[in-house]
Design a protein around this nucleic acid. Structure first.
Length: 474
RNA sequence: UCCCCAGUAGCUCAGUUGGUUAGAGCGGUGGACUGUUAAUCCAUGUGUCGUUGGUUCGAAUCCAACCUGGGGAGCCA
């Protein structure tokens, strides 16, 4: 609560009033949007107002004696924006601790046509809400998602800060087309209708803004490695762009990724880092957002609170790829794609491991080198690399990480084997040439984390304005 | 990108072996009742049946293409 500098009244957030932070009998003004209005012939109206500060709306009891009761209060509909001044009282009715005995209602904005206001006080499908991404944060579900998303985001920063990690903002624009994680969006200021050409007939990128081809980043990892190899413990947390034509409930073209990178660390170190971080943020959500989580438990997924609670104080299952293959081969389940050592795991395999065999997130480690990226550190067996995935029930991979190959000769050998353009990796090779150290890191898909925590099934509903193939509204 | 499904009122859906007048619930609106709170009860309106083309005497219904959405797969976080 704060006192306005110029106005004689004090303002309060809904959360503060409902939590009892405003003394009973004190007069405050709450500002927000009307969720419902109910009129009683006893000469009062009940108006529920939400302002996003918590899941619940506050109930204002508006007496018919107010001068604008007939002219305005009785015309309020869902979505109208109001300031309601009133005395904080303990509620006479059930359903709320405190309420406002209104002494004044000011209307900021009306809803033009209540019949067509898209956010009607009723159940809407998530597909429908997505078409109104600018208004859906007024709904219970999107409001709850965004508060949990914020808590997760803050908790991630807090976790790393408390553990001595530095947040490094790696660039969003990159001129390296070899980040190795999929199709990239081009960044260019060239006139598409009149593209300059070289004598050979190719696009003359020397005339482009950066003097060469540029793209949006698909991963901050390669860049952040150079900061790990100097500041020791670092992480990125920022937007990432993939121009893949992925049409699924767990892919976005623009998403946020958290990528810690740790010098002098090996695969097990970052596997445990991932586990500690997830437990930390799960705990933060349970402690900070019980109201929103209760809603998800009731309306979205009944397991959502229980599974987080259980995981906060139990150890994650760590499993070698090789052991996972044996489990899959011997589980007696018929898979569409047969399992053999050396194959990449299909969704059905990952689902079985996370959802049926373990029943919780599982950390898979040490994959065959032939199915993994060039920068992953080769193990002594010559067959596997020190890579890991964290697989979550219902979502699949939420984290992918590895120890990085710090030995220049081994790295060069891999670049050659995979036929990658060696000249593009000079800065990366320099890190191995000058004071190289073992290091490791992982990437966490932030929206996948939000999906898992909230139980929301489609990743497009846990980011404010989703971008996906053929879909970039607002 | 591939496979499957869907597109009918503001929303969620029912409907059609091709045939006159297209249905329900919710929401909205009006009223009754009520310290109410997913309120309840009564009344009430609404539709280029996704787009384009085809078959047909006649298409919301059958066919084709396309668009959009959903589920699954691949790519991955």
């Amino acid at each position: 609560m704060h006192f306005g500098d110029f106005l004689p009244m004090s303002y309060a957030s809904v959360v503060d009033v409902l939590a009892g932070k405003v003394a009973v009998d004190e007069t405050v003004t709450v500002r927000g949007w009307v969720r419902t209005r109910r009129d009683s012939k006893a000469g009062i109206s009940f108006i529920n107002v939400h302002d996003g500060s918590c899941f619940d709306a506050i109930q204002a009891v508006v007496p018919a004696e107010l001068p604008n009761y007939e002219s305005e209060v009785l015309k309020l509909t869902t979505g109208c924006s109001v300031a309601i001044t009133g005395v904080v009282v303990e509620s006479q009715g059930k359903g709320q601790s405190f309420e406002l005995q209104a002494t004044g209602v000011k209307v900021y904005g009306w809803v033009e046509d209540p019949d067509t206001y898209p956010m009607a006080p009723k159940r809407h499908s998530m597909e429908y809400l997505r078409e109104y991404a600018h208004l859906r944060p007024r709904t219970n579900v999107t409001g709850a998602v965004m508060r949990v998303r914020n808590t997760l985001s803050q908790a991630i920063h807090r976790f790393f800060h408390e553990h001595g990690y530095l947040w490094v903002s790696t660039p969003i624009i990159t001129t390296s087309d070899c980040e190795g994680a999929g199709e990239m969006f081009r960044v260019s200021t060239l006139d598409l209708m009149n593209v300059p050409k070289t004598e050979q007939g190719n696009v003359d990128f020397s005339q482009d803004f950066f003097g060469k081809e540029a793209f949006l980043t698909v991963s901050g990892q390669l860049n952040v490695e150079s900061y790990a190899c100097s500041l020791s413990k670092v992480y990125t947390f920022g937007p990432t762009f993939r121009a893949e034509n992925s049409n699924t409930s767990r892919h976005l073209s623009e998403f946020w990724m958290v990528e810690p990178e740790v010098a002098f660390a090996d695969l097990d170190d970052v596997a445990h880092l991932a586990e500690d971080m997830l437990k930390y943020v799960f705990k933060a959500v349970l402690e900070e957002r019980p109201d929103d989580m209760a809603f998800f438990e009731q309306r979205i997924n009944k397991d959502v609170v229980e599974r987080l609670t259980r995981m906060v104080d139990s150890d994650f299952v760590h499993m070698d790829y090789t052991d996972a293959i044996e489990i899959l081969k011997n589980c007696g389940k018929q898979f569409e794609y047969p399992v053999e050592w050396g194959v990449d795991l299909q969704s059905e395999h990952e689902r079985y491991l996370a959802e049926e065999h373990v029943g919780a997130p599982v950390i898979l480690k040490n994959y065959p080198r032939d199915i993994k990226a060039f920068y992953m550190r080769q193990n002594e067996d010559g067959k596997t690399v020190a890579a890991m995935d964290v697989l979550a029930p219902g979502i699949g991979e939420i984290i992918g990480g590895s120890a990085r190959e710090e030995r220049l000769d081994v790295l060069d050998q891999r670049i050659a084997e995979m036929d990658l353009p060696a000249e593009e990796y000079e800065f990366y090779r320099d890190l191995r040439r000058y004071g190289t150290v073992p290091h490791a890191g992982f990437g966490l898909g932030f929206e996948r984390l939000v999906s898992y925590v909230t139980g929301m099934q489609n990743i497009r509903d846990v980011i404010p304005f989703p971008r996906a193939p053929k879909s970039a509204q607002f």
